[in-house]
Design a protein around this nucleic acid. Structure first.
Lengths: 115, 115
DNA sequence: ATCGGATTTGCAAAGTTCTTCAAGTCACTA
DNA sequence: TAGTGACTTGAAGAACTTTGCAAATCCGAT
């Protein structure tokens, strides 16, 4: 058996993979079900090869899977666990960031007053 | 007002910050309450300056806050929202990774059979 | 004042990740 | 079977991050 990867390292890796704007957008688009690359490309609006590179990253880490359907390739989130994780992460993060931006707004006001 | 950072970008950034083994460990240690740097250092076992750099990253992004207490510096997770987020992320991620390692184990067996 | 422990900062070297361009594959159709 | 559209892959350079050393800072004790 290979040395077990420490859990904290696996977690860090997972977060790191999520930590890229294109990858996050892809995952959010796949949230609602499988989508052909063509769609993702249209929504995200970057070079095909860049998107493909990022899809490759998600694929290699087992976060999404793809299959060919005639001449197009369709991606979807791999396994139910991951979909669940993504939903929760999304919810929490959205709350968090809304909270933070309120905080930031307050800070900005405070600053303005002190100027 | 400055241009609003798109939400997906803020999310990506947040995940990216979490995506480092030392930073994850720090956050998990702070889960149970404030801790002096000395403690973190002892638990994590890396160079003081490396730890300090990573604490700096967490600090700059407002994920932790620190204050001096006599000659030691104490860190803690900033704000209730972040603590909650961390707990949930932790729970989900742990489940996910356990699931994944089971999956990996199955894949390894399947491979062994096909050799 | 000076020292010593605790922590942070500045900085260069090493390592990693991103982006792009060019070339490659695959499946469909003419 | 040559051509085309839809993707993927390889590779190189740019951009970014991490690491560790040395110097700086801060505080309490001498």
């Amino acid at each position: 058996m290979s040395a077990p990867v420490p859990l904290y390292q696996a977690k860090a890796e997972f977060f790191r993979i999520l930590g890229h704007p294109v990858r996050i957008r892809v995952l959010e688009l796949l949230q609602d079900g499988p989508r052909p690359v063509r769609d993702l490309l249209a929504e995200i609006g970057i070079e095909a090869s860049s998107l493909s590179q990022q899809l490759g990253v998600l694929r290699r880490y087992g976060i999404v899977v793809s299959h060919r359907e005639a001449s197009t390739v369709v991606y979807e989130i791999a396994g139910g666990d991951i979909a669940e994780l993504m939903r929760t992460a999304r919810r929490i993060l959205t709350e968090l960031l809304v909270g933070q931006s309120e905080l930031l707004a307050e800070l900005r006001e405070a600053e303005a007053v002190n100027r």
